[in-house]
């Protein structure tokens, strides 16, 4: 018989309170992460789960791991996730319609089966003795204890894992690197392109925004000599984002001039 684990000694009341307060929140957050439509929401809910776990680590006498969890996961890794999310597009949201036939029911069935099996396994297991606790192991301090383990017993694994880390960093750089297909266009090339273009309208450069307008702001188009708005005076980025003020209200009214 596989001796899976554990008896399990009871904990003190404060820890129980902490657990029963935070654990349901962690599960709810995890489910939320699973169901959230927007990736950003998922990321934030995951960050919450990780912080909860960090608290549990600390509560279980794993002080160093708890700190590392917060610094590395909720700090670095989650920031990396968010950064990539921004890069790929914050708005990119999943359609929740499943397009692989039978994928969702099969997954849920498998998950219920797996969860049920694991839970019943844990429930069945017994160690036959009470939990030891880490008080003895942490007599010299948790960090010192871990360091002793890392640099003696696990030094080989430690070295290997450092090599893995370096390799991963290099790999990421290689993957992220994109080859330039053309040489970069310089000022001279741009100037030649302007004069060789179909019209000389923009030969002297595009008009600046807000010029001759009543507002001197980047999101307000310039006015042409006839009083109409110059669409090319607004940055295409702002235009694409829709952050452009309707220029009609700034245009001069030709009717008024006729009346005068």
């Amino acid at each position: 018989m596989l001796n899976l684990a554990l008896h399990v000694g009871a904990t003190k009341t404060p820890e129980a309170v902490l657990f029963w307060f935070l654990a349901p929140l962690a599960v709810i957050a995890a489910l939320g992460m699973l169901m959230a439509k927007k990736a950003v929401h998922s990321a934030l809910l995951l960050a919450w789960v990780m912080i909860t776990l960090a608290i549990f680590y600390i509560a279980q006498d794993a002080l160093f791991l708890g700190i590392v969890q917060i610094v590395v996961y909720t700090g670095a890794v989650m920031m990396l996730f968010l950064f990539i999310l921004m890069l790929v597009g914050v708005d990119s949201s999943d359609s929740l319609v499943e397009n692989i036939k039978g994928q969702r029911p099969a997954s849920i069935a498998a998950a219920i089966g797996m969860g049920g099996l694991m839970v019943t396994l844990i429930g069945r297991a017994s160690l036959g003795r009470s939990a030891v606790g880490l008080v003895a192991a942490n007599t010299n301090g948790n960090v010192q204890g871990l360091a002793e383990q890392l640099f003696t017993k696990y030094v080989w694994a430690f070295e290997v894992i450092s090599a893995l880390l370096i390799t991963a960093a290099l790999g990421a750089m290689v993957l992220a690197h994109s080859q330039k297909v053309r040489s970069r266009t310089g000022q001279r090339d741009l100037s030649i392109a302007r004069f060789r273009g179909d019209s000389l309208a923009s030969a002297a450069g595009l008009p600046s925004s807000g010029v001759f307008a009543r507002h001197n702001a980047v999101d307000v188009p310039a006015l042409l000599p006839d009083g109409s708005a110059a669409p090319t005076s607004i940055s295409s980025v702002l235009k694409a984002r829709g952050d452009m003020i309707e220029s009609a209200i700034f245009e001069l009214q030709p009717k008024e001039e006729e009346e005068n």
Binding site: A5, L6, V8, G9, A10, T11, E15, A16, F19, W20, A23, A26, V27, A30, L31, M33, L34, V49, F56, Q60, S107, I108, A110, A111, M114, G115, M118, V119, I122, G123, A131
Partner: peptide, 19 residues
């Protein structure tokens, strides 16, 4: 509270992640 509750929590979170 029993320490094994942490394990139950771990199993639940793992399953949710798998799904």
């Amino acid at each position: 509270m029993d320490i094994s509750n942490y394990l139950y929590l771990s199993a639940l979170l793992f399953t949710i992640g798998a799904v």
